[in-house]
């Protein structure tokens, strides 16, 4: 399966994004074996270093604008529910610029997968603090250190109604791949946070290699999942929560497929005539 493109890779050598890219390729192959091939696996991406993954994968999709790709893939999914959709976003992108979209996608249980490249920094705009940066983070916009406490996105998204919430680490490619496969297979909103070191502005390899620990069992109670998401030491990777709930598009219009089942012109003319004659 050819998943490479001819695009020149411009990530910094050693960037955690390489681990994610390799994990995604492996996941795409596994998904293809399970019947979810790249003909119907669609991607989007936010704007940032993370977004460049769009150019590096031979997967169809739409390279969105900063913070909005959750809405982009929701649109794809709602228009043609046969598609499986996945978007690759940044911590600045999804938790700063586009937080409302992630929260609401979770709230409505939109059947999409969101993969957050969480390097706790704005990489592409040269190293400013983000919603997940630790307090005191020094960057171009906070030379004396950030004065804000970080968000806890996993706890927040669990509270918002996320039906599949997981964390993985770019340094563990097989774990990245397995988690992505499970997230895509999950019917409903799934979010995978990937701990991603940015060697240039926030090198967290040592920290993660020390602190990351496999979560052996997925909590089955929401409260327990949220408690687990709050633990900072160790940093658990694994699935924090997984539950089956009705998905948005089916709740709204059942088994209909708006793009595929689009009515013919004649049929529309007939329905308009009907409607106008009743009025």
């Amino acid at each position: 399966m050819e998943l490479r493109t001819y695009a020149e890779n411009t990530w910094c050598p050693g960037c955690g994004n390489f681990g994610i890219l390799n994990g995604v390729k492996r996941a795409a192959e596994m998904l293809s074996e399970k019947g979810i091939g790249t003909e119907r696996l669609m991607m989007s991406a936010g704007i940032g270093c993370h977004g460049k993954i769009f150019d590096y994968l031979r997967i169809s999709g739409l390279y969105s604008i900063h913070g909005r790709s959750m809405a982009t893939v929701e649109g794809m999914k709602f228009a043609n529910p046969d598609l499986k959709v996945i978007t690759f976003v940044g911590d600045g992108d999804a938790y700063g610029e586009g937080l409302a979209h992630v929260l609401f996608a979770a709230k409505r249980n939109a059947d999409i997968t969101v993969v957050v490249h969480d390097n706790k920094v704005y990489g592409l705009t040269t190293g400013q603090f983000t919603p997940t940066s630790t307090k005191g983070f020094k960057g171009g916009s906070t030379p004396e250190g950030s004065v804000e406490d970080p968000l806890n996105p996993l706890a927040l998204l669990l509270e918002a109604g996320g039906t599949f919430v997981a964390r993985t680490y770019s340094g563990k490619i097989p774990h990245v791949a397995d988690t992505l496969v499970r997230a895509v297979e999950h019917e409903g909103f799934s979010l995978v946070e990937v701990l991603q070191p940015c060697v240039t502005y926030n090198d967290t390899y040592r920290l993660y290699n020390e602190k990351v620990k496999l979560l052996e069992e997925t909590p089955d109670k929401l409260g327990e999942a949220i408690d687990t998401a709050r633990i900072q030491d160790p940093l658990y990777i694994g699935v924090f929560y997984e539950v089956k709930k009705p998905v948005y598009h089916r709740e709204l219009y059942g088994e209909r497929n708006p793009a595929k089942d689009s009515l013919s012109r004649e049929e529309r003319v007939r329905r308009i005539r009907n409607l106008l004659s009743v009025r």
Binding site: L62, A71, T72, K77, N80
Partner: peptide, 12 residues
């Protein structure tokens, strides 16, 4: 953005 995404999938 949903509308643009839906157009990508072929919906008017």
């Amino acid at each position: 953005n949903m509308a643009v995404g839906a157009a990508f999938a072929g919906a008017k």
